[in-house]
Computed example of a mutant assay.
Amino acid sequence: MKKYIPIAFVSILALIVWLPLWMLFSGSFMPLDEIRAGFGPVLAGKSGLANWPLIPKYPTLMPYVELLLDSPEFFAMFWNSVKIVVPILIGQVCFGMPTAWAFARFRFPFKKTIFTMYIALMLMPFQVTMVPNYLVLDKLQLLDTRFAIILPAIFSTFPVFIMYRFFKSIPEAMIEAIQIDGAGHFKTFLYIGLPLGAPGIVSALVLGFLEYWNMIEQPLTFLQNKSLWPLSLYLPNIAIDKLGVSIVASVIMLIPALLVFLWGQNDLEAGIRVAGLKE
């Protein structure tokens, strides 16, 4: 009997974690009147207690129809997110991999000092670097363009830290063996670094996607032209009388993040484990 207690406890925790997601999914099929009736005390200042049924009493597809067929700005902001997030991830891989490999496998002056600076930058929140970034982007005349979001994110230090740990864990014997066979630094990186460091690269991509797909502060700070706003800024602009559309937009916005997470889940778990190891 005792062996079932941990299973039951974990199952209850799993249900608690999944409950908000189920409420979001079921709420996307609720008519606006049912949502207002359930959340009237919270949203409209009415008296009584708020409630949220697990299954809609009168399910409808109208919120999906209204969002997907009558809200062209939603698709414009969706593609804005794609045009921002995809270049960021490509840039982080192109610049982060060589940097992480250099820190992990090469010796050069002030290596530890520079890497410590990388770690310090990784720990700084956006609010600390916002003003310097704004001044630099203003000097480069990049404000109110997608590059104002893309360029600072490309040179983020967090992907370097994740990939560095994987490259550092590669046995030195493998590096020496391929170099004895005549491979140079580039071939060593191509045939040893990339295959063995792939989980770190994938985990960096997954974490990067989850971060930049949902970012709010950066576009609010650097983008004044609303035609360039990403999808993450779509939800705060939805009025109370369109709560059904807001819930559907949340569901659709969650789908890409969920798919990316499921795609890289195993590598992400490995990346978190390796990142937590001490040198």
Rank of each mutant, 00 (worst) to 15 (best):
R105G: 00
F115M: 04
S232Y: 13
V128K: 10
F110Q: 10
V82W: 01
K111T: 14
Y191M: 01
D241I: 01
E217M: 08
V251S: 02
A37I: 09
S26Y: 06
A270S: 15
G197N: 09
I35L: 12
S11F: 11
K2E: 11
Q218N: 13
L262H: 14
L54H: 03
E66M: 15
I149K: 00
P53I: 11
F25S: 05
I16W: 04
L262Y: 13
K226T: 08
S232A: 15
S71V: 09
T113W: 05
L67V: 06
P20M: 06
Q127I: 02
A270I: 02
V202G: 00
F39C: 00
L210C: 04
I16D: 02
L142F: 06
V202E: 00
M117E: 07
D241E: 15
Y134L: 15
L223Q: 02
K168I: 01
G200C: 12
G91A: 11
I149R: 03
F147C: 05
V248W: 00
V260K: 05
M30E: 06
Y212Q: 01
F75M: 15
E269A: 12
F167S: 10
I55S: 03
E73N: 12
P59Q: 11
G38L: 07
F261H: 06
D33W: 09
L54D: 04
V128L: 05
V10T: 13
L151S: 09
P132G: 02
K112T: 09
F167G: 05
P236E: 12
M122Q: 14
K242P: 04
L49N: 15
K57Q: 12
L67T: 01
T99D: 09
H185K: 08
A275T: 15
F95K: 00
S156G: 07
K168V: 04
G271A: 10
G182C: 12
I84T: 01
L32V: 03
N214E: 13
Q218Y: 08
M174H: 04
Q92H: 14
G96T: 05
F261Q: 13
I114V: 10
N80F: 10
T129F: 13
G276H: 12
G96L: 08
L19H: 06
F29L: 14
A239F: 03
L24Q: 08
P171R: 05
I240K: 07
L194W: 14
W79T: 00
L121M: 08
M253H: 02
Q218A: 14
L15F: 08
A239V: 02
V160I: 12
C94P: 05
G271F: 07
S169P: 09
